[in-house]
Structure formats: C-alpha cells, structure tokens
Design a protein around this nucleic acid. Structure first.
Length: 151
DNA sequence: GCCAACGTTGGC
DNA sequence: GCCAACGTTGGC
C-alpha cells in the first residue's frame, strides 16, 4: 500500500495504531481492498513521492472491507457526489501498525535487485496505490529490511 | 518543475 | 463503443 509520507507516514500509523485506508479513488486499487484482502494479511507500507521513495514498514489488515465513509461526506476532499449510501462506489480496509523496517528500502535498491525483477511495484508505468506482492518478494523485503515480522 | 504513463470523462 | 481531451500519479 502506497502513501505519501507528508500526508500519512509509517510514523503516523505507529502513533495511531490503526487507520482506515480511505481516499482510494481508483477502481483497480479498490477491488483489491474490497475483494482480495483478508483480515490478518500482512501489508508492505510504501512511501511514495518521497526522497527517496521506498518501503518503510509493515502493516496488517485488521478489518473486513466496508464502504469508505469519506465518499458520503460533502466536506471531505474525497467526497463523491455520484456515490449512493445503498450503492457505494468506494471500499476500504483498516490497517494496523506492525513495525517500521530497521533498514528503509529505497526504490533504486529495489530496482537493482534481481530477486525482485518481476515485482509488480517495479513495472513500468505502475501507479496503483494498492497492489499485490508475491510471497517470495515479500520475504525478500522483510529480510533485507531487517524486519522481525515472519511472513 | 517536467513529463511519461495511465485512468476517467464525455461528446459523438 | 470509440477516442480525444483532460486529470492524476509519482519518479526523476
């Protein structure tokens, strides 16, 4: 899951403990949250639009998917007038803090790592803010980042 | 700040 | 259903 650290960083998640992953307004990313993420599943926490960008930590899915409440709030920047209470367009999950990586893994390092050559994150033009990570890639990142989390 | 890549919108 | 125009993401 990608987030801009200026907006919401791994430290913000550690401080809050858990957070609703609201504001996602891309259908493909939404579908992953709505249909594919199970409670207890581990998540890589990626800092985008940072210098450098990279994987900063580990989180965990801690709710089933439910409609993103910000879509119904006219005062929210994520308000969607086309969304109806009985037919929500946008869904999310809650995530909880697991750990910050002992070693931040910057994007250039990931790019030069052969074991990650076919990682979704590294594909040309990939912009999805919620995307799948294969088990081998996940394990490599936990190990390289000095994580204590077991996959 | 630039711009490539991609997604969405809306006219037809 | 097509596709041009536009908006957004996000690395650099």
């Amino acid at each position: 899951m990608k987030t801009e650290p200026d907006v919401f960083s791994i430290h913000d998640l550690r401080r809050k403990g858990r957070s609703a992953w609201d504001g996602v307004r891309n259908y493909t990313a939404r579908n992953f949250m709505k249909d594919d993420m199970a409670v207890g599943e581990l998540v890589l926490f990626y800092h985008s639009n940072a210098t450098p960008p990279g994987v900063a930590g580990v989180a965990k899915v801690c709710s089933k998917s439910y409609p993103d409440p910000t879509q119904f709030d006219p005062k929210s920047e994520y308000y969607d007038a086309k969304s109806k209470i009985d037919a929500p367009r946008w869904w999310l999950v809650d995530v909880e803090f697991v750990e910050e990586l002992a070693t931040f893994l910057p994007l250039p390092l990931l790019r030069e790592t052969r074991a990650l050559a076919d990682m979704v994150l590294l594909r040309k033009g990939m912009r999805l803010s919620v995307q799948p990570v294969s088990k081998p890639h996940f394990k490599w990142i936990l190990r390289a980042g000095g994580a204590s989390t077991k996959p």
